[in-house]
Each structure stands twice: as C-alpha cells, then as structure tokens.
C-alpha cells in the first residue's frame, strides 16, 4: 500500500500550525492514515465500547430479562449516547417503545439472529471491519455476518427495502457522510425497545479523532416516530491486536429453538448433543 509518509504531514503541520501547537488534537489528526486520494483511510477493524447496545438513552443498572441469568446478564449502567439525553419520541411512539421493551425477550430481532441494521450494527458489542477504496467502502460486521456496501458519491435510491438499508456516501472534508434509506422497519435500535420505522433516514458521520479512533455520529429522521431528528455520538476504537482477523459469528443455529421451538414435534425436546457441536 502506498501512502503519504507521515513525516511529510507532521512537517507541514508544524510549519503551518506553529501558532496552534496548544491545540493538541491537530497532531493526532494528521497521523490518521490516508488513502492515495488524500481522504482518511477508515480501513481497519473497529468496535464501540459502551452500553449503547443495551440502551441508547441514559440508564441505571437493570434486571436481566430472565431472572435466572442473574448478574451475568443484568443490564450495566450507561450515560447514554443521545444528544440531549432522551430520544424525542412522539407520545404514541414512546408508548410503542415501552411496549417493545416489555416484550423484548420474544420480539428483539437480535435474539433471532436477525441483522442489526443501521445504526445498531455499529455499536453492537462485536468488532466490524471497514475496507475502503476510492469508489466504494465495504463494512463487514461480525454479528450474523452482516455486510454493507457504501456507494461513494452514489445517488441511486434503494431499489428494495433491506435489513441493512441502502447507503450512499460522500466525503465532506475529513468526514465520511453516509445517507442510509430503504430500511424494512424490522430492526431495533438497541435491546431496550428503541426503534425507528421503515421510513427512517439515517445520516452517519465517520470522522478521524486520532490515529486509532473515529468519531461516529448518526442522525435519525423519522417524522412518524419522532418530533424532530436526533443524533447519537460515540467514539469507535481501532482493534490493534496483531494479525487480527474477524471471526465468523453465524448465530442462526443458536436462535432456532427460540424461533421454531413452538413447532417441535410433541413429545420431543431440543437434542442436547447439538449443543456441544
């Protein structure tokens, strides 16, 4: 891979920004890898480290959805990732969110090994890999082997609805802006019942924060659910383990008893030998 030597950037930065040396983030930004075309190179393996996957809104610790799971699967506390604290639901939509929370054990698509959609896939507690070239960016998510293709400077509308949506991206300076539409409305935003409808438009922003950090923002617009657009924001951390390769998490078998157990032949049980395979 050819890239501009970092020393060149640092030299130039030092000359130009001698007066702003106190702005310590400047040095970090110019060390973020860049592509041959000069844009930030988002390639690499990333992961969010927070409790957004439990609940986007601020939350105290909570009981596990099945009491016998105890503390291991209790909900940890989190300050939330929503700008302004709360999601601005319309009144009837907040009631729907609460209904989903009450029914999360059966209804959360994550438990069925369904694709996480956007933005949930970004902050699920698993790594994902970004592969970038000038025309296209691909994101591969460990959970349920989800993939998204981001069409750089793409303008085609979504031909059909999908779980991961249809992504058109563009560069605004050092920020990759991704507009995602064409959702099928069946994904959730977290494990707490927060949701958007099929009519949602999600605008993501990926901005380098330092050599091994990205800032991730997602603005969600959906007039049938919220009174105004709202934004979540969090850092993404680069996985720096040497030789790291994303592992497969094909969770389909683990969801089968949950999804199809009610159709099992009467008098038979889930065969335990399958569990140890």
């Amino acid at each position: 891979m050819t890239r501009i030597p970092n020393t060149a950037f640092i030299l130039i930065a030092a000359v130009i920004c001698g007066a702003c040396a106190s702005d310590e983030a400047d040095g970090d930004t110019v060390e973020f890898p860049r592509t041959a075309g000069g844009q930030p190179d988002l390639s690499g393996v990333w992961q969010a480290v927070n409790t957004a996957h439990w609940n986007l809104e601020p939350h105290v610790p909570g009981y596990p959805v099945l009491l016998e799971l105890g503390a291991q699967f209790a909900v940890p506390p989190g300050p939330g990732v929503v700008d302004g604290g709360e999601i601005p639901y319309l009144p009837e939509a907040r009631a729907e969110r609460d209904r989903r929370f009450a029914n999360r054990l059966t209804d959360d698509p994550e438990g069925k090994c369904y694709l996480g959609g956007v933005p949930r896939s970004t902050y699920m507690p698993y790594p994902f890999q970004i592969l970038q070239n000038a025309d296209d960016i691909l994101i591969v998510y460990q959970f349920a082997t989800g993939t998204r293709r981001l069409f750089v400077d793409g303008a085609e509308p979504a031909p059909l609805d999908s779980w991961m949506g249809w992504s058109n991206a563009r560069w605004e300076g050092d920020t990759l802006v991704v507009e995602v539409t064409g959702f099928n409305g069946q994904t959730w935003l977290d494990r707490a019942g927060n949701y958007a409808s099929a009519g949602a438009k999600v605008t993501e922003r990926y901005t380098p924060l330092g050599p091994d950090h990205l800032q991730y923002e997602a603005t969600i617009e959906d007039a049938s659910v919220y009174s105004r657009p709202w934004t979540i924001r969090m850092p993404l951390y680069r996985i720096v383990d040497e030789g790291f390769q994303l592992l497969e998490f094909k969770c389909e078998p683990f969801a089968e008893e949950k999804v199809y157990g009610h159709l099992r032949k009467p008098g038979t049980e889930f065969p335990e030998e399958v569990r140890s395979q």
């Binding site: 060149a8 130039i12 130009i16 702005d23 400047d26 930004t29 924001r233």
Partner: peptide, 24 residues
Amino acid sequence: MKHSMTRLNRSILAVAVAGALASV
C-alpha cells in the same frame, strides 16, 4: 468529544498539504 481543530486552521492546513502533495 468533538475534534477540536478549528475550521480555519483545517483550511489552512488543507491548502498547505495540497500544495505539498503536488510536489511529493
């Protein structure tokens, strides 16, 4: 935790870098 570089500084840097790139 927004990136703290001002827009003006970024523009100056971008112009300088663009110029430098041409000769790299």
